[in-house]
């Protein structure tokens, strides 16, 4: 019996164009496309890529399209869902991870492929991720890794480091006999005995962010204000969490020159908000930004600010907010953002 594979790729690999077409909506076609053709060859006759699903990167990074993408995937009746390779492309990686995660959550076998530094890597949920190269030049070897992983996943076999598995294997809370303090003493005695390897927590690996190129001419740039300082309208109408935020929000600045005390407040749980609430510009400096706009020092201020609460936030969520903000601001033509942090 042939294993039915659905392959997710982005607009670029679907042959629709680069950044200029990054806003195309979700779509699909029968059969393999782009890198899927080579993947189909590597998988051989026991597998068939029955459909290719794609989406523009700017859309795919937003959470709202996931239902549409999953509907297209489901319509093709897959045994296995394969996404990528996404290399180090952030928005594409996020989409690959989320499609694989959504498929896995529905009980469909899934595997994603991206570079270990891709910011999407922690979004794959319980779906495994295998490593691609850094750039599309490394497509060949990346597809070989992926094809081998697809065979294993289709057979229900677990993937390990030898298969190129990267990203986190889910860590679960368990109860053990000794207290944490007793285990710490055992660990310190092991260290004194010369054991330099023993640990209960593997060292996390953080990606290094390469700063964007400087803005060529800030006097013509569209500039956005963004913050983790949890500044929201006084009634907190969208119930932003004060800690462990799982989402971010947007509020309009159109027609506003100031953020008056009493109309806006910070719901951040990580610091005393007395001074922030006395003058909300201490969190979102709209007053100064409007002045710079009037003086022509910046081109124009973006019509809304983006906000979340950075307090006890998981690194995975914080990274996702960053990628989503970048995609959202790019879609709206923003060239620079001022991030105020508390």
């Amino acid at each position: 019996m042939t294993t039915r594979v659905v392959h997710y790729i982005n607009q670029f690999f679907a042959g629709l164009g680069g950044e200029d077409t990054a806003t195309v909506p979700p779509a699909s076609k029968a059969g393999a496309a782009g890198p899927g053709r080579k993947l189909a060859q590597l998988l051989g006759d026991d597998f068939e890529i029955v459909a290719t699903v794609w989406c523009g990167d700017d859309h795919a990074a937003g959470p709202e399209v996931m239902d549409d993408l999953l509907a297209l995937v489901r319509a093709a009746g897959p045994d296995v869902v394969v996404t990528g390779p996404a290399f180090t492309s952030g928005r594409y990686g996020l989409a690959c991870a989320r499609v694989a995660a959504a498929a896995a959550a529905e009980g469909i076998a899934a595997v994603a492929c991206m570079h270990p530094d891709n910011p999407g890597i922690d979004e794959a949920g319980t779906a495994p991720v295998v490593a691609s190269g850094e750039v599309a030049r490394q497509m060949g070897p990346s597809l070989e890794t992926l094809a081998a992983a697809v065979r294993k996943v289709a057979a229900g076999e677990p993937l390990g480091a030898d298969d190129g598995r990267v990203g986190k294997i889910p860590r679960r809370n368990v109860t053990v006999d000794r207290t944490s303090a007793e285990r710490a003493v055992a660990l310190v005695l092991a260290r004194l005995g010369g054991d330099r390897e023993a640990t209960e927590v593997p060292l996390p690996r953080f990606d290094q962010v390469t700063p964007a190129q400087p803005v060529t001419d800030v006097t013509t740039a569209l500039v956005a204000l963004v913050t983790e300082g949890a500044l929201v309208p006084d009634a907190n109408p969208d119930s932003l969490e004060s800690a462990r935020a799982t989402r971010w929000l947007r509020y309009s600045l159109d027609g506003r020159d100031v953020l008056p005390a009493g109309e806006f407040r910070s719901v951040h749980g990580g610091f005393s908000t007395v001074w922030a609430n006395e003058d909300p510009h201490r969190i979102v400096p709209l007053d100064a930004a409007r002045q710079l706009e009037a003086e022509g020092a910046i081109g124009k201020l973006h019509g809304e600010y983006l906000v979340t609460a950075g307090n006890g936030t998981s690194v995975g969520n914080a990274r996702r907010f960053g990628v989503e903000w970048a995609a959202d601001l790019r879609r709206q033509g923003v060239q620079a953002a001022l991030l105020t942090a508390t």
Binding site: D122, K168, G316
Partner: peptide
């Protein structure tokens, strides 16, 4: 560890660079 609800995120916000022995 602050690894997210599904336990797949990075465990530690600021890890040490020279030391490695950690109890969870």
């Amino acid at each position: 560890e602050m690894a997210g609800a599904d336990g797949t995120g990075p465990s530690i916000v600021v890890p040490p660079t020279k030391a490695t022995a950690m109890v969870s």
